[in-house]
Amino acid sequence: MRVALFITCYNDTLFPQTGKAVVKVLERLGHEVEFPAGQTCCGQMHWNTGYQAEALPLVGRFVSQFEHAEAVVIPSSSCVAMMRDHYPIMAERIVREGGDASLPARVAALLPRVWEFSEFLTKKLCLTDVGASYPHKVAYHASCHGLRSLGLGDGPEALLRGVKGLELVAIERKEQCCGFGGTFAIKNADVSTAMLEEKVQTVLATGAEECTGCDNSCLMHIGGALHKLHAGTRTRHIAEILAAEEKGAL
């Protein structure tokens, strides 16, 4: 299959290693990866912070960059949730405001081919073993958008259980938000910190070497606190674990 990668703005800039890992996994599974060059951002930050007018142009941009693709893979659950939950209503609004009348139909046609990375593996390719090896003790953080909007369920954990040598440990109250929430972490820094402290305690209580997940934004948040505490435990996107092979990590 020819898979178009939407890397997302923050992964592109801050976590290129995640993108490289996605490419490695998909190519190892025999798929061809393309990277439409004009891609930038899904618009989540603007839309969720209340700057809807600023987010609207990004819908058409994404659609025109990706509508030719057989499948679009995105290693960020919140960006996929942004598209599924909001692109249809955003497209309608663009039409109401005199914009591209073809957009709602094009969004509707494209969305069923848009997949979060782990979801693409478990639901589209129906895989739980992608040939990875990672002999470490790992805890899985279920990001809210993946858990609730996308309904990823046990998918990511099934993938981790399929990794050779990996010991998966459960985080207590794993469905509880880590307190990131985009601009929430800035606007309500104190509450966000209190939420994060709880999350970090439950992560550390697992004794895991690493905490993984499907969304680098939450992992950046949790990882930032772990780093500040000199905890030794670090965070790593699930793609990087699934990319790791017997001889060593990516």
Partner: peptide
Amino acid sequence: WIHWLPGMLGGWTRSRDLEAIPSESFREWW
């Protein structure tokens, strides 16, 4: 790692460090 950010963004670094922007973006690597 970044341990301090100015202004409003300082809300972040009070309780979290921030991993710095790596020397090469994904698209540059691509």
